[in-house]
Simulated assay, not measured.
Amino acid sequence: MTSRPNYLVHAPAWNPNSGGSIFLHGLVHVLRSLGEEAFIWPWYRDPVPGAGGVAKSILRKPSLLFGSSRHFLNRQLDTPVAHRDNFHQNSIVIYPEIRLGNPMGARNVVRWLLYKPGLQNPFKFTAGEMFFRAGAMSDIPEITGGAQDLYVWQRDPAYRNENQAERKGACYLVRKGAAKTRIPETANAIRIDGKSHAEIAAIFNACKTFYSYDEASLYSQFAAVCGCDSVVIPGLFASRNEWTAQHPIARYGVAYGLDDLDHARKTRHLVDGLLAEKEAEGVETVKRFITATQARFG
Rank of each mutant, 00 (worst) to 15 (best):
215 E>Q: 07
246 Q>G: 00
237 F>N: 14
277 E>V: 00
232 V>R: 01
228 C>A: 03
185 E>Y: 01
179 A>G: 10
210 F>T: 04
196 S>F: 05
204 F>Q: 07
244 T>L: 12
233 I>G: 01
210 F>P: 05
254 V>A: 07
219 Y>W: 06
242 E>V: 04
245 A>G: 11
223 A>Q: 04
226 C>K: 05
183 I>G: 09
223 A>K: 08
185 E>D: 13
256 Y>E: 12
228 C>T: 04
192 I>C: 12
226 C>M: 11
222 F>W: 10
207 C>T: 13
245 A>Q: 10
225 V>L: 06
272 D>E: 15
171 C>M: 09
227 G>E: 08
228 C>R: 06
224 A>Q: 02
246 Q>K: 14
191 R>G: 13
168 K>M: 12
216 A>R: 07
171 C>H: 08
255 A>H: 05
221 Q>T: 03
217 S>N: 04
220 S>Q: 03
241 N>A: 15
249 I>G: 13
276 A>H: 00
233 I>H: 04
254 V>W: 01
266 K>Y: 04
260 D>W: 02
272 D>P: 00
184 P>D: 08
215 E>V: 00
204 F>E: 10
233 I>R: 03
171 C>L: 06
219 Y>P: 00
252 Y>V: 07
175 R>N: 14
279 E>M: 07
241 N>R: 11
265 R>S: 11
184 P>R: 06
224 A>H: 01
270 L>H: 05
212 S>H: 00
223 A>T: 05
246 Q>W: 06
258 L>M: 12
211 Y>F: 11
243 W>T: 05
243 W>L: 02
216 A>T: 07
214 D>L: 04
186 T>V: 15
268 R>Q: 13
199 E>I: 08
248 P>D: 06
205 N>M: 02
238 A>C: 02
211 Y>E: 00
179 A>R: 14
193 D>A: 09
245 A>Y: 02
269 H>L: 03
254 V>P: 09
188 N>Y: 10
186 T>R: 10
182 R>F: 13
255 A>W: 01
183 I>P: 13
250 A>C: 14
218 L>F: 13
198 A>N: 14
183 I>D: 08
233 I>S: 11
198 A>C: 08
281 E>T: 02
178 A>N: 11
200 I>W: 02
183 I>V: 15
262 D>T: 14
243 W>C: 06
182 R>S: 15
216 A>H: 04
211 Y>M: 03
253 G>K: 01
273 G>H: 01
172 Y>H: 11
189 A>F: 09
258 L>P: 13
270 L>M: 13
248 P>L: 07
281 E>R: 11
196 S>K: 12
242 E>Y: 01
218 L>E: 04
271 V>D: 04
255 A>Y: 05
228 C>K: 03
240 R>H: 13
243 W>R: 01
181 T>Q: 15
250 A>E: 03
232 V>T: 05
195 K>M: 15
192 I>L: 11
196 S>G: 06
266 K>R: 15
228 C>L: 02
180 K>S: 10
272 D>R: 11
191 R>V: 11
